[in-house]
Design a protein around this nucleic acid. Structure first.
Lengths: 339, 339
DNA sequence: TTGAAAGCGGTACCAA
DNA sequence: TTGGTACCGCTTTCAA
């Protein structure tokens, strides 16, 4: 059956306190006693019941993660990054998926709080900050990733979205494109940031911003391809058809590319495309997709480190914002000049 | 601060036992008392401490999942399927990734056992059954997915791999292919099963099995593409070059396709390809990939249901094996006949 | 250096 | 219908 501390204590004729101290490397134990205890622990393959420990220490050594979609490559990579850090530090990871549903997300967060996670990492789909206030009132630290909220002083780890937009757009300008369209995402911070970066880059390079060249797609992954397809169709109907398009993410870019092919146009000669996310398959397409790498794995790693710092601190630590540098991954879909 | 049962009991002048009973829907509580308790619970937004409950009941209401790679679309979808079932039944999901490393996997399993998961779901990379014996000795039920082990009477949920191989091969035969090669995976049960199915289909259709047409690739995802590429190069060098290839998974198929293109050959006219996994992007390739859908989501759902049954049973339930039916997803990479 | 006692926040059992 | 008491397996405190 399951071995408990008291079994070891009884076997050795010492108290449970002694065993407990040995297991946590307390100094006030004689070398000899320590030896004996460790030997027996190994023999019986004893592992302390972490649920019991959690109850008395008030710390579960578990981190809760909520993402909108586990299958989305971005969140999957973030989760993997988090997992790699937690493993090394002896923390467990409880994952739940909100399916992009704010109400479901609230329930998941409630559940994680009831399970007394030491800290939460959230890629949130909330519209308001109410839920975060709830978390704060329970004194549970949390780290937001990917999407941030104005007016909320919280930890945040993400890519610098304005730079994402700027890099993508400037790259297209350098390739000689002049009528650059943008298929943006809905009102989340990444969508807004990338859009701002796009505008900034246009004006900084003496190009006119034209709102007809901006269409809103869906940022959800499955829907992304279809909405990118439709959005691109609309853009291609314009009087002066765009000669390039920067898409909010790679899924949208795939749909857009499909629409361009169907219109009988060439990528990149007639329409150049840049996506965002650097999903693993984007290099294998009919025309490999130029994209902006958003450092998914690094986001996970940084978020996990920050989360553990917050979890271990006696007092709440000052909100920290970590912005990672996006990276251009130039492929065929935007290469108009021989290099 | 955090609300406890005793706070509610004090406020209402009842005992904690009464509160506890109300929360678990015990029948022996007057309607009036129940009302009062529930009202206060709602007011204070009380949620029971599940760590404490776990300690006394011996059940954590958590399921542990170990997969080789979270980013792999197959395992991501399995995880999502599991998650959807657990959420409905009030269970939490602790996920860890073994990175295809058997030793790391053992540690992760140990950790999950120390955290007293009610049941484990494992896509295991172990070579021996030793670890499973350990789990059994602790009386923790577990469900294997994807990879099974001979000589181990355990629960298992996966696709019927022999059928996978047979369906893929028969499809190629129907398309008129006669020299069908196979890039197989390493010695895991899915690799062996698909290989057996491939052989069976060949002989059942009067085709000769030729071991020169079988090459072993790596089943790991990242490595998959490269190893598929190399394996295909070798196959193309054969005297009588194959006119079709069935690949262990879609990653390998991508690499193989690349090698075929580089050799200046046409897919599917000169070499037809079938993969396995139906990864989300396989329909978007230069030549959309025919593949065998291995029911990832259904595997997760079935595994979760079985796991919960096992977790709730008083006594170990008899090992159950659930084999799901693979499905052919025919796309351009194998279409040689007009239909 | 060691251990007795108290208690973490709940649940089970049984008596009132 | 209600609640006192013991206890789940561990840690903390403090006295020996």
């Amino acid at each position: 059956m399951v071995v408990r501390m008291k079994d070891i204590a009884r076997d050795l004729g010492v108290s449970v306190v002694t065993v407990s101290k040995v297991l946590r490397n307390h100094s006030d134990i004689s070398a000899e006693t320590r030896e004996r205890v460790l030997k027996r622990v190994k023999e019986l393959n004893y592992r302390p019941n972490l649920a019991a420990r959690a109850l008395v220490t008030g710390r579960t050594n578990m981190v809760g993660l909520v993402v909108p979609d586990l299958v989305h490559p971005f969140f999957a990579e973030v989760a993997k990054g988090i997992s790699s850090v937690l493993r090394k530090r002896g923390y467990g990871l409880v994952i739940s998926s909100s399916e992009e549903d704010p109400e479901l997300e609230r329930q998941e967060i409630d559940d994680l709080l009831a399970r007394r996670m030491d800290v939460l990492i959230l890629a949130s789909t909330q519209w308001t900050v109410e839920t975060f206030r709830r978390i704060e009132s329970l004194r549970t630290p949390y780290v937001l990733i990917d999407r941030k909220f104005t007016g909320l002083a919280s930890h945040f780890v993400g890519v610098d979205d304005e730079k994402v937009g700027a890099i993508a757009t400037e790259h297209l300008i350098q390739q000689g494109c002049r009528r650059i369209a943008h298929i943006r995402g809905r009102e989340t911070s990444p969508a807004i940031g990338r859009y701002e970066g796009y505008r900034r880059a246009l004006t900084a390079n003496g190009l006119r911003f034209d709102s007809r060249y901006v269409v809103t797609g869906s940022s959800a992954d499955d829907a992304g391809e279809l909405s990118g397809y439709r959005a691109m169709q609309r853009l291609l109907e314009l009087d002066k058809r765009p000669d390039a398009v920067f898409c909010f993410n790679d899924s949208i870019a795939l749909g857009a590319m499909k629409a361009i092919f169907e219109a009988g146009l060439n990528v990149p000669k007639q329409v150049a495309i840049v996506g965002c996310g650097n999903f693993s398959y984007t290099g294998l397409l009919r025309v490999p997709l130029t994209t902006i790498d958003q450092q998914s794995s690094a986001i996970g790693i940084q978020a996990a480190k920050l989360a553990l710092r917050a979890a271990r601190a006696k007092k709440p630590i000052r909100p920290k914002e970590i912005l990672l540098e996006p990276q251009l991954v130039a492929r065929a879909s935007s290469q108009r000049k021989e290099t």
